[in-house]
Design a protein around this nucleic acid. Structure first.
Lengths: 185, 185
DNA sequence: GTCTATATACAGATAGAC
DNA sequence: GTCTATCTGTATATAGAC
């Protein structure tokens, strides 16, 4: 079947966003999909290959969503709020951003996957820098676009991390209030 | 020996802050300290007991550091910068906050340890709320102390998470610049 | 308090049949 | 592509000697 690899990745993605990469086993994946663990190894010979596939897949879908935000008509405030919405959807499912989760486990990853993870963060920051720069006239902050971008992304990842533990979304809400107030109020 | 438990906790703390709780085994702890894994079970019958000891120990030392900041003479800006410094020391060692790391692994913890983890974050936020409220006249932000506290703590945890992956401290620096600018500039 | 020895379960990974 | 079977290593945890 062509769909098996797809099912494996889908399940693995949700599992890692919930419990982390270390806690995911080929046996659990196999049982969940209804095949044997040796068959999972056909699709992903080593677990690091699965990690790579997950980071690449998650990154591709994420940057596609960012492109959609960038291309939409509307001002910066609307686009920033759309950016927040991506993270709000994640916490609603009691998950973390895949790359935020794997960032905690970075010491367990090989060099290639560490680089893919770093790329996810730096490219997202660069997307924010470009967005802010294009709408520079709409904001009142004197901080550089670089500082705003790095602060915004790490603030959102941290808010997800803590909100899931405390079981609300107050930190995500607080971050939104703070950035909207600082940039547009 | 009385010092064995101490050595075990010290090693475990550093290991979890680096690689996470799931990746730490009683065997590694034992080998590191120079005893057998069965002896580790004498001190911590189950792994969850170790998790509890680590969270409680880390929290106690952290809140002690917060008390020292609160009792020191000086204005709010100085105290907030001292708060940042705690996190800067962590990233220098290429580690995460213990509770930030375990927040990623919260689904693997039992209810008691989840509660201890949630307490760490909410108590720290409350400490920040109290601090900000006491120095309300020194800040220029119109945001509530609650929003500022939740935003500040989660921003710092997120900055640690991302800086370790990208292998610099630019996000921690950006957060400091943003908060100092927003509150005091 | 630490040891040896062991129980039981699970991990990633591979060989070879079909 | 998936299977059975298996290898090798590791995990948490316990029993009982010293």
């Amino acid at each position: 079947m062509k769909g098996i690899r797809e099912k494996l990745e889908k399940y693995a993605l949700g599992s890692v966003q919930t419990s982390g990469f270390k806690a995911l086993s080929f046996r659990k994946m196999a049982t969940e999909i209804g095949i044997k663990s040796s068959s999972v190894h056909y699709h992903f010979p080593e677990k690091s290959h699965l990690a790579k596939a997950l980071i690449e897949r998650y990154s591709a879908e994420f940057f596609q969503a960012l492109d959609a935000i960038a291309e939409k008509p509307g001002g910066l405030e609307e686009k920033i709020i759309d950016f927040f919405t991506i993270f709000e959807e994640v916490i609603k499912e009691n998950k973390l951003c895949l790359c935020g989760m794997m960032a905690a486990e970075v010491e367990l990853l090989n060099d290639e996957n560490r680089q893919l993870l770093a790329d996810y963060f730096t490219k997202t920051e660069q997307w924010l820098v470009d967005l802010i720069t294009q709408h520079q006239s709409e904001i009142k902050s004197s901080l550089s676009a670089q500082v705003l971008a790095k602060s915004l992304l790490s603030s959102l990842e941290g808010a997800l991390l803590l909100d899931r533990v405390v079981n609300d979304n107050q930190r995500l809400t607080a971050q939104k209030e703070l950035f909207v107030s600082m940039l547009f109020a």
